[in-house]
Amino acid sequence: MYLPGAFVLALGALRAEPRITEAFRTGDGYGWDRHDADVFDGCELFFRPGYLANLVPSWIPALNDVQDKLAAGARVADVGTGLGASAVLLAQAFPAATISGSDYHHGSIELARKRAAEAGVANRVSFEVASAQTFSGAGYDLVTTFDCLHDMGDPLSAARHIRQALAPDGTWLIVEPAAGDTVEANLNPVGRIYYSASAFLCVPNALSQPGGYALGAQAGEGPIRQIAADAGFTQFRRVTETPFNNVYEARP
């Protein structure tokens, strides 16, 4: 993790403090897309080094059969792609693969397209403005969600759409903040950081969307497993973890 990025993220988020306060009073929530640009930039600065260090070296190899599919030219959907860091990393590591990134935030998608062009992978990475419940395409070998499922107002509907978009032998890679299923399991330095981010960013964002869910950053494995099962996935396992992330595999 690049900790200075966390400070950029935090300072950007604090600019919305009066509006977050009002969102707590009304229960209306506060959308991610309404935050200061430093929130988007800081989030990528904070998480991208973790993806760089782990996505290709350890997370992809931990999944069943996925690395070979990517090497052979798999089709990938990166849902909630943000500024496209994860999509670009996958494209750079697997030159035969094609990646479709999606995010509901227009500004992030504009930057993601710019980043892909600068990295020289724009011919194999495309981006669209779409929610996790409406992204386009089908028959994907791999669908990825990086640190975003817990932010969604209707993660179950998103999971169902992902299930429909996957090939019969496809894989859903779910990367979520490191969390336990109980309060006491999260009483540690990382948990304290994530509880703060969850209360200020994640839960208000989920409440701003249709669906009625508010998982928050400290959802733990149990709620994620339940969403996958309710969406029709028959296989679910935690494949690996870091101090900041839990990594899960769900398959039809």
Rank of each mutant, 00 (worst) to 15 (best):
L215T: 11
S196I: 13
G216S: 12
N188Q: 06
P223V: 03
V190Y: 10
L187G: 02
T182N: 03
Y213P: 02
P223K: 08
A197F: 15
S208F: 14
F200N: 13
A185D: 11
A217L: 13
Q218E: 12
E184Q: 10
Y213F: 15
A214K: 11
R225P: 03
Q226A: 12
V203Y: 01
Y194V: 11
L187R: 11
F200R: 08
A214G: 12
D181F: 04
L215H: 06
T182Q: 07
N188Y: 11
L201K: 10
V183R: 10
R225L: 05
L207F: 06
V203M: 04
A185H: 06
L201D: 01
A185E: 12
G222A: 13
I193H: 05
G180W: 05
A185C: 03
G220D: 00
N186R: 02
Y195N: 13
G212K: 14
G191Q: 03
G220Y: 01
N188G: 09
A197K: 04
I224P: 03
P204I: 03
Y195V: 13
G220W: 02
A219D: 00
I224Y: 04
L201S: 05
S196L: 14
G212E: 09
G220T: 10
Y213I: 06
Q226C: 07
I193L: 13
P204K: 11
N186I: 02
G211M: 11
P210N: 10
S208H: 14
E221G: 12
A219K: 00
A199C: 07
Y194H: 12
R192N: 11
N186F: 00
S198C: 02
I224H: 02
P210D: 15
S208T: 13
Q218A: 10
P210C: 12
G216R: 04
S196R: 14
L207P: 00
A217H: 11
S208Q: 14
V183Y: 09
Y213E: 08
N188F: 08
I224E: 03
G222M: 10
R192G: 03
